[in-house]
Computed example of a mutant assay.
Amino acid sequence: MRFCNQDQSNQGARCGGERRFARHPDQEGGGHGMRGGGMHGPRHGRGGRMARLLEHGDLRLLVLHLINEKPRHGYEIIKAIEDLSGGAYAPSPGVIYPTLMMLDELGQVASAAEGSRKLFSITPEGKASLAEAQPAVDSLLARIAAAQPREMAPPVIRAMENLRTALRLKLENTDRASGTIRRIADLLDGTARQIEDL
């Protein structure tokens, strides 16, 4: 079996009359990335793993930190948090705007109307509160950075696609009662153990 560009192969479809595996990403036209709902699950889940990292009071500190960097609209704060989390978490407006209202009531931010939107700026009281909580802010930013989803390396993606294709082709043409099924399972179990031991 020869390699074939994955976009052409459709995970084992015929290419030029032969079934072929995915092309190595270093070869012409090969390789692809995974984002969003791929290996990492939904990018904008409101209660996902990234959201669970935020302890009580963390969102308030994070919003104050972002407004301290520069004045922002509510949408810009949502986008900034999404960027900080590597796309893993984007808080909903129903979470962000009540937080902004609370900061406004505490006198830590001030809002100015810009058409139909409000621009939020930090106040001296907000700067003082942020400075007092700086160790907690630094810890929060470090946790968010550490929890960002990691993209799998292209060679691993290619190998997984090749394994999926090989299994499908073999199982389609193998008697389920034969010893081949048991041998395949043993091979997969052994490979899994080797990967765990790396």
Score class of each variant (00 low, 15 high):
Asn10Glu: 13
Asn10Thr: 05
Asn10Val: 05
Asn10Met: 09
Gln11Val: 02
Gly12Trp: 09
Gly12Pro: 10
Cys15Asp: 07
Cys15Gln: 03
Gly16Lys: 09
Gly16Ala: 11
Gly17Asp: 07
Gly17Ala: 08
Gly17Thr: 09
Arg19Asn: 04
Arg19His: 14
Phe21Ala: 13
Ala22Arg: 06
Arg23Gly: 00
His24Glu: 13
His24Trp: 10
His24Lys: 06
Pro25Met: 02
Pro25Lys: 04
Asp26Met: 03
Asp26Pro: 00
Asp26Val: 05
Asp26Leu: 08
Glu28Gly: 05
Gly29Ala: 08
Gly29Leu: 04
Gly30Cys: 07
Gly30Thr: 10
Gly30Val: 09
Gly31His: 07
His32Arg: 15
His32Gly: 14
Met34Asp: 10
Arg35Asp: 01
Gly36Tyr: 10
Gly36Lys: 01
Gly36Phe: 04
Gly37Arg: 15
Gly38His: 13
Met39Gln: 04
Met39Leu: 14
His40Cys: 03
His40Gln: 13
His40Thr: 02
His40Phe: 11
Pro42Ala: 12
Pro42Tyr: 08
Pro42Gln: 05
Pro42Met: 07
Arg43Gln: 13
Arg43Gly: 15
Arg43Trp: 08
His44Ala: 13
Arg46Lys: 14
Arg46Ser: 14
Arg46Leu: 03
Arg46Asn: 03
Gly48Gln: 08
Gly48Ala: 08
Arg49His: 12
Met50Tyr: 00
Met50Asn: 05
Ala51Glu: 09
Ala51Arg: 15
Ala51Pro: 03
Arg52Trp: 01
Leu53Met: 11
